[in-house]
Amino acid sequence: MEDRNRQRETGTPGTDDSNLGEIRSQADELLRAGDAAVQRALSGDASAFLQANRQQGGQ
């Protein structure tokens, strides 16, 4: 239990109120960065990309 509490103090997830604000803040940051990342990564022609990306099955 001590280990678990120590981890929460260093930013790992938990359920107590003190962490909720931090979790929300991290999620907001992810959304902002995610939007930019997605715009940068997507090809603009998903249909053509998916055809080029057709894969054979493996194991």
Binding site: D3, R4, T12, P13, G14, T15, A27
Partner: peptide, 21 residues
Amino acid sequence: CSLWGETLDGLDADPMGLSTR
């Protein structure tokens, strides 16, 4: 076990709280 327990706690509270992890 520490990481395992924290993760289950987080999932139980709200899985989206683990969206950076």
